[in-house]
Design a protein around this nucleic acid. Sequence first.
DNA 1: AAAACATTTCGTAATTTTGCGAAACATAAA
DNA 2: TTTATGTTTCGCAAAATTACGAAATGTTTT
Lengths: 99, 99
Amino acid sequence: MATKPKFTAQHEQIARIAKALSHPARVYILEKLNGLQTCCTSGEMIGDIPIARSTLSQHLKELKYSGLIQGDIEPPKIKYCINRKNWKIAKMILNDFMK
Amino acid sequence: MATKPKFTAQHEQIARIAKALSHPARVYILEKLNGLQTCCTSGEMIGDIPIARSTLSQHLKELKYSGLIQGDIEPPKIKYCINRKNWKIAKMILNDFMK
DNA sequence: AAAACATTTCGTAATTTTGCGAAACATAAA
DNA sequence: TTTATGTTTCGCAAAATTACGAAATGTTTT
């Protein structure tokens, strides 16, 4: 019996991770938070990229939703950091896929 | 003088590669062509995924445009293969980014 | 020349993404 | 309590993505 095929959960997971990395602003954010080993406020990021504050905020929200970053509130600022656990998982999944 | 920042070429390159991987149909195609070490026609792929032939064709076109795959015409079929050179480059760039 | 085959292109629609400025929110300082 | 600071949410618009079926393309077989 020919059942209707679906995308596999694995393919969807890889696609979701890739999507998080699919915009230069998000690549910049992730690189800054991961590469420089620091947490960082949106105010410290906005000077480096050609988008409005509200747009940056949207990208941060998306990355938070993806689980790759997290935001720690330190009034009146919000310090964004890499979520090390999920970053490691994403790294393994992508590296394995690109083998 | 405060000049308007731009996204860097590197950030844009990473984003472009990630975008190619950001849809489950394209993940499936790349996995099939790379993982199974074979070339493959669109007719051989269509049975495995829940999209129309014309939509699959669009995704193939996008992957061709990204440089990650290539299509060799063998009338009346078209055999799609991984572009090993570009795949290797993409792999290095992504792995380095995810370090 | 007609029919069959494999695939793409076209036209179009629905949805998602990206972007901005204005307004709102929350906290701290004056 | 007003003002200042840092950031997000809202409302909206423009652009890009995803999707489909129908028609077109190019090739081989009959």
